[in-house]
Design a binder for these strands. Sequence first.
DNA 1: ATCTAAATTTGACATCGATCAAATCCGTGA
DNA 2: TCACGGATTTGATCGATGTCAAATTTAGAT
Lengths: 234, 234
Amino acid sequence: MEETADMMNSNFKLNNRDRAVLMKTPFLTSLTGNSLVRMMSTMSVISLTNRKSIFREGENADAFYCVLSGYVRLYQLNRDGREADIRICSPGDTFAECLLYGGTKYRHHAQTAEATTLARFDMQAVRDLADQERDIAKAVITSLSKHLITTMDCVANDRLHTAPQRVANYILTRCPVDGGPASIRLPFQKNLLAGMLGLAPEALSRAFSTLRRTGVTVRGRVIQVGDVQALREI
Amino acid sequence: MEETADMMNSNFKLNNRDRAVLMKTPFLTSLTGNSLVRMMSTMSVISLTNRKSIFREGENADAFYCVLSGYVRLYQLNRDGREADIRICSPGDTFAECLLYGGTKYRHHAQTAEATTLARFDMQAVRDLADQERDIAKAVITSLSKHLITTMDCVANDRLHTAPQRVANYILTRCPVDGGPASIRLPFQKNLLAGMLGLAPEALSRAFSTLRRTGVTVRGRVIQVGDVQALREI
DNA sequence: ATCTAAATTTGACATCGATCAAATCCGTGA
DNA sequence: TCACGGATTTGATCGATGTCAAATTTAGAT
């Protein structure tokens, strides 16, 4: 059995960190005993290098995924062929699970945005399980609920806030709650952050430089905040 | 027992149209027998006049709703106190159901945008039912899935299309599929359509006048399309 | 049919963010 | 440590949309 460096499909090579993320997934975290075993048996683990397609818009949806490590970009093409990110999935995020009961075709393109490990769940197998096992149905509900809430937040964020406000919000979600200075490190390229916030990369860059006036310093992936409280006022 | 004209709360006065909408709700459409009865018993019907608050951001979420007739506006306030619509709910739409398993507080304001009849479901009662009855859990899943998909479409639409394109898309979803001329009537004020599409009312108006070049004529709530096919090319 | 208030449109701006190109920075591998 | 290539920033510009005010239209009530 031969595997390329680009794609490995195995249930065995799960490192500890990936395993921990997997077990905290809404799909697995509340399961025990038999349900957990059955759910795990519908799953396989996939590792991909950067910029590999996971699925394409319009394809038959026969699996959904959880990100264990790395990042996944969900995007669509506009009329001119330009890509617009709909969602950036981080470790712990699930995507395409809404097609369990919502449709049969993928609705956008999915591609890795880094070397990425995914848990792949067979759509039909999980459908069958959810029909049988109460706690699995509940896990599906919890996952969908959380996903829906973050997606509605995304709409609200897009419609309500300017670019600097969105960036400030993002920084604040990663900062200690008290008011003083803080320093955080982006876990990914600015490219991806731009996609999360619905901005072009240049707009993100300009938003950062607007925030300099509010005491935000950016060097590479490191963001220093002079006064967390001041950032809230933006 | 006295009722004001502004709010009537009763299970009895459901006209035929409202009843038909109610039974097609994802929450009820797939239920039969005992499940249907139990679900109905957690429900009450509420009628409100225009511009009445249903709930406010931050309040305790003890119910979710289905729109039977009329429209509901979900919105948030930005820092300047300006309202931005997050979602416009039409007859058949459910809102706040993501809080069944996703949180305990309402995340935005909800207010009627017309005289409106709602089905009100007690949150805790439905939670208990979903834990007991398989088909109710499934109904919840279906509802959440569909809602999640439309919300992701909303993000995509916002990020991918210009104002005239969004308006064209909206018109096309209400037009016969073949290519010729067509005429539709908006079921609500343009105000609401603007909110659905994430536009200021003035921007909607300008989008319509842009579409005049493509053979779209607007008089009041009536929209005439010269060539449906041409509209797709926008 | 007429009147009135509300909704919509239009005009004039101001702003924001996208786009393209060029310069610079950063991280990685040798 | 150095050099390279990709990522990011910056500059210049443009187009799209929000905003406010005024004109006009529409819908509902009398």
